[in-house]
């Protein structure tokens, strides 16, 4: 790993939601602040900055990761995906997002981006999840509004619809 000097600004080049990005960051800058305030993608939220609440979850090289525990300079060369990339086009929602809306799986919406990013990655490798498995998987996310019940229902519904779509394809 390269050694960085605290006083230097470092160049960070990476793939963000399918487009290449080049920007500068101080070595201590968190990926959350970098995404939100340097690059203007405010869909990724900051809930605790110590890795417990999961609101800041993004996908780094396809895997869910806490952006608040990641330094901006660490994603140099990586493929980063955020909630802004989930909808297929403006004005349309993904199957997962639609399921969340249908089941009232969000209220204030602050934790939602992180949960969507985790579920999006999970359902790709686990197309037929059980409820207990989903509950365990989502235990890395805190939601204070919904009591989780509608989130689990939305995830199960989305998984079913995604399977049906795959079967028909």
């Amino acid at each position: 790993m390269p050694r960085l000097s605290a006083s230097d600004r470092c160049s960070v080049r990476f793939l963000l939601n399918g487009r290449s990005v080049a920007a500068e960051a101080e070595p201590r800058m968190l990926l959350t602040d970098f995404l939100r305030h340097s690059l203007g993608l405010t869909g990724t939220h900051v809930g605790c900055e110590h890795g417990v609440c999961g609101a800041c979850t993004v996908q780094i090289d396809g895997k869910p990761a806490r952006a608040c525990l990641t330094l901006a300079v660490q994603v140099d060369g990586a493929n980063v995906r955020t909630v802004e990339d989930l909808a297929p086009e403006p004005g349309r929602l993904s199957v997962l997002q639609e399921a969340f809306r249908r089941h009232h799986a969000l209220q204030c919406g602050f934790c939602t981006a992180g949960i969507l990013m985790s579920l999006d990655a999970y359902l790709k490798t686990n197309p037929e999840p059980s409820e207990p498995a989903l509950r365990e998987y989502l235990s890395g996310h805190l939601c204070r509004c919904t009591g989780y019940v509608p989130i689990i229902a939305a995830a199960l519904d989305a998984a079913k619809r995604l399977r049906e779509a795959t079967a028909h394809a």
């Binding site: 993608l41 405010t42 869909g43 990724t44 939220h45 955020t82 909630v83 802004e84 989930l86 909808a87 929602l93 997002q97 969340f100 809306r101 969000l106 204030c108 919406g109 602050f110 939602t112 981006a113 969507l116």
Partner: peptide
């Protein structure tokens, strides 16, 4: 919900 689900909330 549409805005909140797509990262377009205005907190």
């Amino acid at each position: 919900d549409a805005a909140l689900l797509t990262g377009r909330g205005r907190y």
